[in-house]
């Protein structure tokens, strides 16, 4: 049996703002069906890596491969086609504040499908009920709590049934219970959608709950220090920085999911 094909491969990637290098020599692959966690301390370039993956900012050097396609070498229309197969949950939710939840979820559908309005309404109601927000169609984002906004944003991200879902710090700004509910929702959605999930986070509880594979980016040495399942890394990794991160600086090799 051969290993499943990687959904995303990152080769010799360097990220920089002008002459300020954030990360260099990144090499890793994200396998189809994985929940892949990109972890690291603040300011190490996790969110920038997402911007590269989403086509918002070209990398300084190196390449990103979606399947067999070299993402940044593709013409713009093809890049848009690749990005269309992804969905993203932004750190702040990034719901369009001038539109209701229903309109937020409907916009990608209206833009990419020719479905009649009635079908779109049904689809929107279904996606919102998947994230536990049935009946909130006519609410504006500002009228919701932070956790609800995150979930609504998730409903928008899965509107087009993406193959790859990106999450930018899903648990940031959520209380522990909402964060756990969101984690469970993420796991549930992966099971049912069969999507590949790429999660940027530094929330350890979340990392141990959901991750099947991971990469650790270090801001001081400006490169990746480890890759693998975080639970395995916790037991086997010999790098002090990684171990410090995974144990919140205590050095005790035990999984503590709160």
């Amino acid at each position: 049996m051969t290993a499943p094909a990687p959904a995303i491969t990152i080769k010799a990637l360097t990220m920089a703002y002008g002459s300020f290098v954030l990360q260099r020599d990144l090499n890793f692959a994200i396998t189809r069906g994985d929940i892949f966690v990109i972890m690291g301390g603040n300011g190490c370039g996790k969110s920038t890596l997402l911007r590269h993956l989403l086509g918002l900012k070209p990398p300084a050097s190196g390449s990103i491969w979606y399947g067999e396609e070299n993402f940044w070498e593709l013409p713009e229309e093809d890049r848009a086609r690749v990005v269309r197969k992804t969905g993203i949950l932004y750190q702040t939710g990034a719901l369009w504040s001038s539109m209701t939840l229903a309109e937020n979820v409907a916009l990608p559908l209206l833009h990419y499908t020719d479905l009649p309005p009635a079908d779109i309404r049904d689809l929107v109601a279904f996606k919102l009920s998947l994230v536990g927000l049935a009946g909130f169609e006519e609410f504006y984002p500002a009228e919701l709590s932070g956790g609800m906004r995150k979930r609504a944003s998730l409903a928008r991200a899965i509107a087009l049934d993406p193959e790859i879902l990106f999450f930018d710090e899903p648990s940031a700004g959520l209380d522990p219970i909402s964060a756990r509910i969101l984690d469970e929702l993420i796991l549930e959605l992966r099971e049912s959608l069969g999507a590949t999930l790429v999660v940027v986070t530094h929330d350890l509880a979340s990392i141990y709950t959901i991750a099947t594979n991971s990469v650790f980016l270090d801001g001081d040495s400006k490169t990746m220090l480890a890759t693998g399942n975080p639970k395995t890394l916790l037991q086997e990794c010999t790098n002090e920085t990684v171990l410090n991160f995974l144990t919140r600086g205590t050095g005790k090799r035990e999984v503590r999911t709160v």
Binding site: R51, L56, V83, A94, W96, P108
Partner: peptide
């Protein structure tokens, strides 16, 4: 609020 990025990533 990253709303503009959100538009770009869905190709609008």
């Amino acid at each position: 609020n990253e709303e503009i990025d959100a538009l770009r990533t869905i190709g609008i």
